[in-house]
Design a protein around this nucleic acid. Structure first.
Lengths: 165, 165
DNA sequence: GATGCAAATGCAAGCTACTTGCATCTAGGA
DNA sequence: TCCTAGATGCAAGTAGCTTGCATTTGCATC
């Protein structure tokens, strides 16, 4: 948690080219606000809520809640973010959909399909990412049992984090 | 879906004794309102939202939204209901936690622990129950990867139902 | 470099889905 | 039957978005 050198980027003037490209190809205009929003996701690979993001951004220059909201919607439409909800929490969470680059290509490589799942500490509320996913066999059983064709799944865990145990 | 004989109970005067017992042991007073609320869950083994339940109840005698809300909270505290949220939906859903009776006892038999998971049709919005669950092996991997002790999990699927395909 | 327009922004108002306070009523034990 | 903790109805309050509108701005084009 120490900030070495110029590591603690307050607000970026530019995003990594890959991401700027992604925005443009998603027909999302690149503005200072949006750079700052996306920059937060790139800095902290954690789930953000509309409000937590708004608070974090306004430690710097002010930025309207509704603009953050619209940025999130735009990013989601463009396939850069996924949205999810947690049992017992009221807010909607967002997290970055990184392209499934270095993974052993076990899915269709459709560009960005590396979603992930989450675990929440029932004591302190910390939310962490998980790299595990639903086994294919289970998906098959779900389709058989329900008659649905499954297109998406969300898996949330609740428990006690290392610190709270 | 046909209603045979007196199968279509409008509002019950009494709940199955097992459930009345459960309420009492959970320190929940049994009132006409609460019988009607719980009755709906017993009649239709589907997820309800506060509002859908309120609407359903008020086809009969009126019953305040806030009372339904408080009944749901009480039932949840008593361990009769579980609450969950679905991605893309705003409301909180509730479903009955039936005691894990006839199952091959693969969990600790703690009274009621037969939770289940859900699949939502992305077209028509229908929500169905699923009888599949997260494999124990996956839970182990989650604990190892995160350092958390897992106490709960929720698994939601999205897809196309038989009718919408 | 100047221009035009679709899209983004700020501000304010509106909406949905709860959630709570309070006076009154009632289930259920004494 | 009586008492009291807890349930109810009604109304007001709150959180978390969501939208409308006038203004500004990114960026493709000239």
């Amino acid at each position: 948690m120490k900030d070495r050198e110029a590591k603690k980027i307050p607000d970026r003037e530019a995003l990594p080219p890959a991401w700027e490209e992604k925005l443009r190809s998603g027909k999302v205009k690149v503005t200072p606000n949006r750079r700052r929003v996306l920059g937060r996701f790139l800095d902290a690979d954690a789930p953000w809520t509309l409000k937590s993001l708004h608070r974090a951004l306004n430690e710097g220059e002010a930025c309207e809640l509704s603009s953050v909201y619209r940025a999130l919607s735009a990013f989601r439409t463009a396939g850069l973010l996924e949205e999810f909800r947690l049992p017992g929490k009221r807010e909607t969470y967002y997290s970055l959909l990184r392209p499934s680059a270095g993974r052993r290509g076990q899915g269709k490589s459709s560009g960005h399909d590396h979603h992930h799942h989450h675990i929440v500490c029932q004591d302190c509320g910390t939310v962490s990412h998980l790299d595990v996913c639903v086994p294919t066999a289970l998906l098959g059983r779900v389709e058989d049992a329900s008659g649905f064709r499954v297109t998406e799944h969300h898996l949330e865990f609740k428990g006690l984090c290392g610190a709270c145990r």
